[in-house]
Nucleic acid binder design. Structure first.
Length: 582
DNA sequence: AGCTGGATTGGG
DNA sequence: AGAACCCAATCCAGCT
């Protein structure tokens, strides 16, 4: 079953809008496709999860709710998953800024929906209460408020000349919100013993009292000896800098790349010390004790947490897991991990947006950078890579900037797209992703800087500052369209993966993974996401089917965004026991 | 004591 | 190896 036969398009499921009443009661209204109310419910707190589960079995409506973590975390804890939702907070943020929506006034008259999610900024020690049990979100929770906002969003959508794309974006963003809650509920399978063994191998044995481990100490001593300062504190940047100067190492900073350019007996142990110290403080035994419980790492993901639409995270540094620790990500017995990432996601997305057939050809079925070399624009893969990154990030100097004209000559459409985005940004305009997420307007300070440079009395310094900030903004908008559209592709990919995994069904109790949370312990599930990579945790017997689901989902995401335009998104995919892929 | 900003290093 | 874009987390210094 590599590709499930397309079912007849089911009639659009009805909407069910939810709101909270007193004492945890839930008020619900179902709406038909025209937005007319068809039914009303009032549920006591204790009945809610079972009622949702029953509705899911009976047609699976699209749940319309204020804020996904607040509604969905308790459901997941009760073992109840939902197929789809509309997250009013996230959709409000997209629609009220989107250049694809001609009239945003009505959305802008509801600023209460601009509030940040509850998970955005909790106090550290209330983290678990807030995100597991819901709690105050900052956006309205009542049914009337939800109905009114939902109506505004439907009106905005219907007024858009790009309704289809925006609809896809809202669905993908909302599916992402569901997935973020599910990732936390399921957790990333984590082998604490393997983690401990990695730390011990690199840092030396863990000191019983919690002090610094042997190898870290030894390396630190070597640095102090080489600098002739036995009491030096290596963790203080100013003190370390002064000590280096006293020893004749005239660096301006203590950063790795600058140190590496100098010759001194202290340099080598110092670079080693920094590496060890980083591992120890950021992902050492303290991290393990704080973030890994019962065999799972459960970070908090924040969908839409970045202006471009990428996810943010907080707590545990989920988006910065060092490669050294990947061997600690390990499937449960009888289960496997599927680790899949997209090769060169951003340039491929750019080719799709620009409809650049030459670039699509260079990318098809292989390493895109090799394809660029074959076309003769540059001599080596390394050059192709820096040139492409420079095109998307806005490099103007160095080898990357030098190579840009060659890219312009072979990929004129793709390069015009990013160059236009940069020009729009420099002029103070806004740019928009493929599906309709628009960049923020320039800040008042930015406009002020620009207009001051236009004054008759402007000083050369004013003009320089204005040019600088204009270029900075141009680089931001240049990157925004590509990074933001790549985020949309990834969200769509994950939503399609999730849908296909649900169709694979459950395994027997005998091979369940009980630590994966009440809603997932018998099903293949997503366990990790990082911009262009997913990790799935799947029962061995379903591993091949799940891998097919991941590949099919990539093809489906490409079609949903770019239709029949022939840009492909090849995956690097492994089925393995650990996420370490060497 | 608690907050903010700079420096640094990890991720894409 | 650098520089360009989007980040988070840590530590220390310097401030209120």
């Amino acid at each position: 079953m590599t590709s499930s036969p397309r079912a007849e398009p089911a009639p659009a499921p009805p909407w069910v809008v939810l709101g909270r009443g007193d004492a945890g009661a839930v008020h619900a209204v179902s709406l038909d496709a025209d937005g007319n109310e068809t039914r009303r419910w009032e549920l006591a707190a204790g009945e809610f999860a079972d009622w949702v589960a029953a509705r899911e079995r009976d047609g699976a409506p699209r749940w319309v709710w204020s804020d996904t973590p607040a509604w969905y975390a308790p459901l997941l804890e009760a073992g109840v998953r939902v197929a789809r939702c509309q997250d009013l907070r996230l959709c409000h943020a997209i629609l009220s800024d989107s250049a694809f929506v001609p009239f945003t006034e009505s959305l802008r008259t509801a600023p209460e929906w601009d509030a940040a999610s509850a998970e955005g900024t909790p106090a550290a020690d209330t983290l678990f209460e807030v995100s597991d049990a819901g709690g105050s979100t900052g956006v309205p929770e009542g049914l009337d408020a939800a109905l009114a906002e939902f109506a505004r969003q439907r009106t905005a959508l219907a007024s858009s000349p790009q309704e289809k794309r925006l609809r896809l974006l809202l669905a993908a963003e909302s599916a992402g919100a569901l997935i973020a809650s599910e990732l936390r509920s399921a957790g990333l399978p984590w082998d604490a013993e393997a983690h401990d063994a990695i730390l011990t191998g690199i840092l030396g044995a863990r000191p019983p009292g919690g002090g610094s481990p042997a190898e870290l100490d030894r390396t630190g001593e070597a640095v102090r000896a080489a600098l002739g300062d036995p009491a030096l504190s290596l963790d203080s940047q100013p003190k370390l800098l002064r000590a280096l100067h006293r020893s004749g190492v005239l660096v301006e900073s203590t950063s790795r790349w600058e140190l590496a350019q100098h010759e001194h007996p202290a340099i080598e142990p110092l670079l080693a010390y920094k590496k060890l110290s980083r591992l120890h403080s950021a992902n050492g035994w303290g991290w393990l004790a704080t973030w890994v419980h019962d065999g799972r790492f459960r970070p908090v993901y924040v969908p839409g947490g970045v202006v471009t639409g990428r996810w943010a995270s907080f707590g545990g540094g989920a988006l910065q897991l060092p490669r050294q620790l990947r061997a600690a990500v390990a499937a449960d017995p009888g289960w496997a991990l599927i680790v899949a990432d997209v090769a060169q996601l951003e340039p491929r997305v750019l080719a799709g947006m620009a409809g650049d057939m030459a670039m699509a050809d260079a990318a098809r079925g292989r390493d895109l950078y090799a394809g660029i070399v074959e076309r003769g624009a540059v001599a080596t893969r390394a050059e192709a890579k820096v040139a492409m990154l420079g095109a998307m990030y806005g490099a103007t100097t160095g080898s990357s900037g030098r190579l840009m004209p060659r890219l312009r000559s072979i990929f004129p459409r793709a390069m015009s797209l990013v160059d236009d985005a940069a020009r729009t940004g420099e002029e103070g305009g806004i740019v928009t992703t493929w599906l309709g997420r628009s960049s923020p307007s320039p800040s008042p300070g930015w406009r002020e800087t620009q207009s001051r440079a236009g004054d008759a009395a402007a000083l050369p310094a004013d003009e320089r500052r204005a040019r600088q900030s204009a270029r900075d903004r141009g680089r931001f908008t240049r990157n925004f369209v590509v990074q933001g559209t790549a985020a949309e592709w990834s969200l769509t990919w994950m939503a399609e993966i999730r849908r296909r995994l649900d169709a694979l069904g459950e395994v027997d109790e005998a091979v369940a993974a009980p630590r994966s949370g009440a809603a997932f312990f018998r099903r293949p599930h997503l366990a990790f996401f990082l911009h262009d990579e997913v990790i799935l945790h799947v029962p061995l017997q379903l591993a091949d089917a799940a891998a097919d689901a991941v590949r099919d989902a990539a093809a489906s995401a490409s079609r949903l965004l770019f239709g029949e335009f022939p840009i492909d998104f090849p995956l690097d995919l492994h089925i393995a026991e650990t996420a370490d892929k060497g």
